[in-house]
């Protein structure tokens, strides 16, 4: 019952997104596209947090690496190989994450890792703002939306809403990939490590290697999201990876619910919806956003997804209850 209802809801939401440009205002379409990308970005963060128990505060830096790689390549005239550029940006993010992971993961976890990644992301931002070759503070504007070709078919992503639909497909693929990683053997092992690292190690799991791989995958997906974002916004600036960007996935995840795979996505859309519906109330943005966040944290400490699961469980009111509550309680510290 729970599964079917949630599944139906998901299909409905997906269809609404795909059909959005047919009826909605173009500002709303742009916001929806942005939200999809940051939703995937948040999903990649939660792959690390919800599954491996590692909280990075510098994910914005990896997003920025992907976006800048894409922007520089497109400016350099490699528009023809868009797919290759996405792959390259993803690899760049993965490689940087791997390097950081090798140096940092064995030494520090928890809040130290959080602050370390935060400092690295800030360093990257400051450095980008100093390099004239990538436009310093003003970044790289006028990024083209390239052609996209598979086999013989070529689509001009620069026209109309083509890039939006391309984003829909790309994000769906990334979500599917994340789902597969999270629910496969790898994801299950990660969860074991998160729940009890000593027992996992005792069972013969190379915990360090698993965490390192998770760190790398998460970084690669974050960079991929950044790479998709660059032609969407058509401009990248050093602030694309600022502290606000790094806190975005954290907010979305906790708002939506860290124990649920869909939590970060739900959080992202909820956040955008709040921002869009309060856009005319200028001057008190901070109070509105802050109060809503506070309300959600206090009323639904398991996030929206957790509250939803609990609601369904109560409505169906069958002995399945224990399953729902155990899911809802997962972010509780073990």
């Amino acid at each position: 019952m729970n599964r079917t209802l949630s599944g139906l809801l998901l299909i409905f939401a997906g269809a609404a997104l795909v059909l959005l440009p047919l009826w909605a205002n173009s500002g709303l379409v742009f916001l929806a596209g942005t939200t999809m990308v940051v939703g995937v970005f948040a999903l990649s963060w939660n792959l690390l947090f919800g599954y491996a128990g590692l909280a990075s505060f510098g994910s914005g830096g990896l997003f920025s690496i992907g976006a800048y790689t894409m922007a520089v390549m497109l400016r350099g005239g490699f528009e023809g190989q868009f797919l290759l550029l996405i792959a390259l940006s993803t690899l760049a993010g993965g490689a940087v994450a791997l390097a950081i992971g090798i140096v940092a993961l064995r030494r520090s976890t928890g809040i130290f890792l959080a602050i370390l990644t935060l400092a690295l992301a800030e360093l990257l931002r400051i450095t980008l703002a100093k390099i004239h070759w990538v436009g310093a503070e003003d970044g790289i504007p006028n990024i083209v939306r390239p052609n996209f070709s598979i086999g013989l078919a070529t689509v001009d992503l620069g026209r109309g809403n083509h890039y939006y639909w391309f984003l829909c497909i790309a994000c769906a693929l990334l979500v599917a990939l994340s789902w597969w990683i999270a629910h496969g053997r790898f994801g299950r092992t990660l969860r074991t490590i998160r729940l009890d690292i000593e027992r996992a190690a005792f069972m013969g799991v190379d915990t360090h290697r698993y965490r390192l791989v998770a760190f790398t995958i998460s970084g690669a997906i974050a960079a991929c999201a950044g790479a998709l974002f660059a032609p969407w916004a058509q401009i990248v600036t050093p602030d694309i990876g600022n502290m606000m960007r790094s806190t975005q996935p954290i907010l979305f995840t906790l708002l939506g619910g860290a124990s649920s795979f869909w939590g970060p996505m739900i959080g992202a859309f909820l956040f955008s919806a709040i921002e869009f519906s309060t856009r005319t109330l200028v001057g008190i943005q901070e109070i509105i956003t802050g109060s809503i966040l506070l309300g959600v944290v206090l009323l639904f400490p398991t996030g929206v997804a957790g509250a939803w699961n609990a609601l369904i469980a109560r409505l169906t009111a069958r002995p399945r209850r224990d399953e729902a509550t155990s899911a809802a309680l997962q972010p509780v510290k073990e």
């Binding site: 109060s291 506070l294 206090l298």
Partner: peptide, 8 residues
């Protein structure tokens, strides 16, 4: 996240 919200 709660302290972040309080900050805002």
């Amino acid at each position: 996240i709660a302290t972040f919200a309080v900050m805002l």
